[in-house]
């Protein structure tokens, strides 16, 4: 049995491989799909379970440890008896509760603002722009994703600086550095994460559906509410995972433009080298919030859109 090795496919082997160890192994594997599964699933699953899930378990454990003074009284060490002390401190200290509320509010605001801007933008990309413009827009929207995260924060610092930034120079006023600035600036790097799933979702939505809605007498607004939105919900949820989660964990952007208003991330960052157990406990807050968030939106089918 031979395959003609013509010009089109010069690389194809012209004969079946000779019987040998390699072929026996190949045949054995072909007959044992479970073994094949083991070989392909084993390494990545081991890596993720040992390193990532293991790390999350270590995080949980560490959050239950506490910092105690050394017998000398000069140094601190980590005491590994389990205690809820760190969590107690988080709940009892009003300042930490304020920081939590501020962070969640920021994550929520960024998600809503990005969603409101991205919806019409993605709609324009998918349904109004010419095919040529559409390709250009896809590139234009994804390119800023690659430009450094800190670079973007820094650029916005130069724009928002109340002592001579662009806004001050051109419009005569700037929100300055603070909570508002942090939310505005965080909307910027996460915007493409919201646009891309929405665009993909709208591309899948057939135009004929929109036309049918119009033919049946629906206004543009009604078509949008009753036809577009229900179909777009999984994409919107997928985009929101990114904007929400990324804001929830941010601390660099807030450090660059947020003034003195700390986020959860800033508190974790400020404490991690001196008091890791406390930082670990605070880091469990975004974990819990994200688990609730993921479970809540799993029904929309958003996880398949990531």
């Amino acid at each position: 049995m031979s395959i003609d090795s013509g010009e089109r496919l010069p690389d194809l082997p012209t004969h079946v491989s000779p019987p040998g160890t390699r072929r026996r192994v190949a045949r054995f594997l072909a007959r044992h799909p479970r073994l094949r599964l083991g070989f392909s699933l084993g390494p990545p699953l081991t890596w993720l379970l040992v390193i990532y899930i293991g790390a999350l378990v270590a995080l949980l454990l560490t959050s239950l440890f506490r910092l105690v003074d050394d017998p000398t009284g000069l140094l601190t060490r980590i005491d590994t008896t389990l205690t809820f002390e760190n969590y107690q401190r988080l709940l009892d200290t009003p300042a930490y509760r304020v920081v939590m509320q501020r962070t969640i509010l920021a994550a929520f605001s960024v998600t809503v603002i990005d969603g409101l801007i991205a919806l019409p933008f993605a709609f324009y990309m998918a349904k109004v722009a010419s095919p040529w413009a559409k390709r250009g827009l896809v590139v234009a929207v994804t390119m800023p994703l690659w430009a450094g995260y800190l670079v973007k924060g820094y650029a916005w610092r130069a724009i928002l600086d109340p002592g001579g930034g662009v806004l001050k120079g051109v419009f005569g006023s700037s929100p300055g550095f603070g909570s508002t600035a942090a939310i505005i600036v965080l909307c910027y790097p996460w915007f493409p994460y919201m646009v891309i799933p929405l665009y993909a979702g709208l591309e899948r939505l057939p135009n004929s559906l929109l036309e049918a809605s119009t033919d049946l007498g629906a206004s543009a607004g009604r078509t949008f509410r009753s036809v577009v939105m229900p179909q777009l919900l999984p994409a919107l949820a997928a985009g929101s995972i990114f904007t929400f989660s990324l804001t929830l964990g941010d601390f660099y952007m807030n450090q660059i433009v947020g003034g003195t208003n700390e986020y959860i991330g800033n508190v974790i960052y400020r404490n991690f080298s001196a008091n890791l157990p406390f930082s670990a406990a605070y880091a469990m807050v975004p974990v819990l919030i994200m688990i609730v968030y993921l479970l809540a939106i799993r029904r929309t089918g958003a996880l398949e859109e990531l």
């Binding site: 990532y52 790390a55 270590a58 995080l59 964990g249 601390f251 991330g265 991690f272």
Partner: peptide
């Protein structure tokens, strides 16, 4: 990627 980077960071550091 679904959990914030800071969680991954502190978790790995703890581990």
């Amino acid at each position: 990627i679904a959990l914030p980077g800071i969680v991954t960071g502190v978790a790995l550091l703890s581990a």
